[in-house]
Structures are given as C-alpha cells and as structure tokens.
C-alpha cells in the first residue's frame, strides 16, 4: 500500500515537475539612470544556495574586483565551477544611461535562481545587483527593479584616478560620458560600513576644479531603483 502510494506520488511529482524542467530565460536589463554607466554585466541562473553577494555580508575578493574595477572574470569562474548558466558581458561593454541589453540563460531544477551584477561608473565600489531571485516556473513575463549597492571595500573618496580599478587602489577608474572635475580633495578616506549595503549615493560638487569630489552633483547622483529587469520565462 505504502509502495503504491509513494509510486503514485512519484508519478504526480514527475508530472508537476514539468514546470521545474529546463526553460530558456530571457533577461532584459535597462539602465534607468540619467548619468551612470554599467560596466560589463554578469547574468546567471544558479543554484539557490549560491550568492554573488549578500547584503550585510563581506564582499568576496571576486565581488570586490567587480565592484571596484568592473572585472567580472572572478565571479564568472565561480559560476562555472558550480555549473551555473551564465551570460557574461551581454552589452559587449558599457551599458549607457537609459540603454537596454538582453541576455539569455537557462533555468533548471538546480539552477533555479537568478543573479545579476555590474559595477556602476563613476563610483568607487558601487554596483547594481540582483541576489538569487527565484525564477518562476510558470512561463510568463516578470518585472524587477534593482537597487544600487556599495561593496563596502573602498572609501567613497569620489576622486577619478586612472588605473585605480584594481582592488586596493583607491579611486574611481573612469568617468564615461562626462569628463570629471579635477583636483578634488576627496570626500572621505574611510569606509565605515565594510559589509555590502545600499549605496548612499554620490555626493559630487559644483566645482570643475577643486572641491571635495571630482564628480558633478547635478549629473552623477541617482535615486533607487537604478535598473529595470524584464524576465521572460519561455
């Protein structure tokens, strides 16, 4: 009796499991900001126990490399090590303000959650992120809004310094779209919250030369959300 029942349940599970089988997942990402660029994006369907980042936790070295310099290779290696379905750099470079890009990944019974990361420029260690969002098993179109995070690994001094993208090298590596100010004195030299947290935003200033920040306060600020994601489960 027990055997029959469990066989029956197994049969039902198999049928119901149809919705949890592999599905193509189309991920459209729109940069909603007016003046912030996204460096190469990393989009992945992966196991639900994995995280590229977690709010309130320390950033991994790979996350730090992504958030400070836009280098997604370390995180991509981690994903391939856990057999995730990943799409690296779908925009083939920077995703400009208000621009969109499309990435394809495949969900499965194991790769059931979706994560997205990209550094935001110009920031010291700011990134846009989605952390292990459960991919619906029902086919359809879903919308998600993403916030800006701070990796907590570098002081937000807001000074643009060539070649400062490597972890441990203080500064913002580039300011695409608009030439930065120069000779800022630096907003701060301290990173008080060393966990991943919601980014407090750029301060900027209104001085092209000098002031505290090399960023422009009417151009380089933002309000959350900073990205819209449209997920289509086929």
């Amino acid at each position: 009796m027990n055997k029959t029942t469990s066989a029956l349940i197994a049969g039902l599970t198999l049928m119901a499991g149809g919705t949890a089988m592999a599905a193509d997942v189309e991920v459209k990402i729109t940069n909603l900001t007016q003046g912030i660029y996204f460096t190469p994006l990393l989009v992945a369907a992966h196991s639900s126990d994995a995280h590229l980042y977690q709010i309130g936790s320390k950033a991994s070295e790979s996350l730090q490399a992504m958030a400070e310099g836009g280098d997604i290779s370390g995180l991509a290696d981690v994903l391939s090590g856990i057999n995730a379905s990943a799409a690296a750099n779908p925009a083939e470079g920077l995703l400009a303000p208000t621009a969109s890009t499309m990435a394809m990944v495949e969900s499965s019974e194991t790769n059931s959650t979706l994560s997205i990361v990209a550094m935001m420029l110009p920031t010291n260690d700011g990134f846009v992120g989605l952390d292990a969002w459960p991919i619906p098993t029902e086919a359809g179109t879903y919308h998600i809004y993403l916030n800006a995070y701070d990796a907590g690994t570098e002081a937000n001094n807001e000074l643009v310094v060539d070649g400062s993208g490597a972890p441990g090298s203080l500064g913002i590596p580039a300011s695409p779209g608009m030439a930065p100010g120069t000779q800022g004195s630096g907003v701060t030299n301290e990173e008080t919250n060393m966990m991943v947290h919601i980014h407090r935003g750029n301060l900027g200033d209104d001085e092209a030369t000098g002031g505290k920040s090399d960023l422009h306060n009417t151009v380089h600020r933002w309000l959350n959300p900073v990205a819209k994601v449209t997920v289509t489960v086929k």
Partner: peptide, 18 residues
C-alpha cells in the same frame, strides 16, 4: 541628453549646488 530617464533627485543649495 534628450532622453527620458529616472530622475537623479534635486541637489539644492544646502547640499553643494550653490
């Protein structure tokens, strides 16, 4: 710019835009 985007917020004269 001439493109619709999300608003970055206002700065104001007490927050660095004299």
């Amino acid at each position: 710019m001439d493109k619709v985007a999300m608003h970055p917020g206002v700065v104001g004269n007490e927050d660095g835009l004299s």
